[in-house]
């Protein structure tokens, strides 16, 4: 199932964000489209409304000199893509607005698929939600993230709702799960597909890729990345 996408060209952050938006804009209503990213190198993305300066400071603190973090269309915090398994899901989102319902469905699905492969995680369910959100996605677990047995966050996501469709972008840290990259990708495909209530396709049409290449210009532009 994942063969086609895993052999697709590797992209940087601007390319990944642009292709996700292209799929969101172009996928037929009712379709569920899963992408597992192939990264061209380490990279950093940050949420739609976050200040770029915050992402630059986080990159500098990590020793990533010269990094050019890219603003996502989805919300959420700063994510360092340096060995994570990053994936996206475009799905019908034409009923309730509640993002928690989406996170619970996707993360519960991935959790069950990981469990079937021998990796134990938990759906983080604290008694109350801490005010606000951490600047860095993996700095702390938020409700409905997946955590390891030791409490470390292993899966977080971000969402955008547009035209009756949703774009979920997820980042899964493999450390401590004891699974190969292929097994993790299979778990994500199985779990996310289950969550969407339909078999997810991983076929990315040529015209979607062409639109993605057009949209890359915006994701590389100062107007997009530096507007806050």
């Amino acid at each position: 199932m994942l063969g086609a996408e895993l052999s697709a060209p590797a992209l940087d952050a601007a390319g990944q964000m642009a292709l996700d938006e292209a799929v969101l804009l172009s996928a037929p209503r009712g379709a569920v489209v899963l992408r597992v990213y192939r990264w061209a190198g380490r990279d950093c993305t940050f949420g739609y409304s976050r200040p770029r300066a915050e992402a630059l400071a986080a990159c500098a603190a990590r020793g990533w000199r010269g990094a050019a973090p890219v603003r996502r269309a989805t919300g959420g915090g700063i994510v360092f893509h340096d060995g994570d398994l990053t994936f996206s899901l475009v799905f019908p989102w034409d009923r309730t607005l509640a993002p928690d319902a989406v996170y619970e469905a996707v993360h519960r699905g991935v959790r069950l698929a990981l469990k079937a492969r021998g990796a134990s995680t938990r759906l983080f369910s604290p008694p109350g939600r801490s005010p606000g959100a951490a600047a860095a996605c993996f700095a702390r677990a938020e409700p409905l993230d997946l955590t390891a047995e030791d409490g470390r966050k292993v899966l977080g996501g971000a969402l955008r709702k547009k035209d009756g469709k949703g774009l979920y972008q997820g980042s899964l840290r493999p450390e401590g799960l004891g699974l190969s990259a292929e097994a993790l990708a299979e778990a994500v495909a199985e779990g996310a597909g289950r969550a969407a209530g339909a078999a997810a396709t991983t076929e990315i049409r040529d015209e979607w890729r062409a639109l993605g290449r057009e949209l890359e210009t915006r994701y590389r532009s100062p107007e997009w990345n530096q507007r806050r």
Partner: peptide
């Protein structure tokens, strides 16, 4: 994120973004 004053919009056109703790909505 509000639209610019003076912008022309069509009915049902996305023109504004509201972001909550973990999702952005047109």
């Amino acid at each position: 994120e509000l639209p610019k004053v003076g912008r022309t919009v069509k009915a049902a056109e996305a023109c504004c973004v509201v972001e909550s703790v973990k999702a952005a909505f047109d």
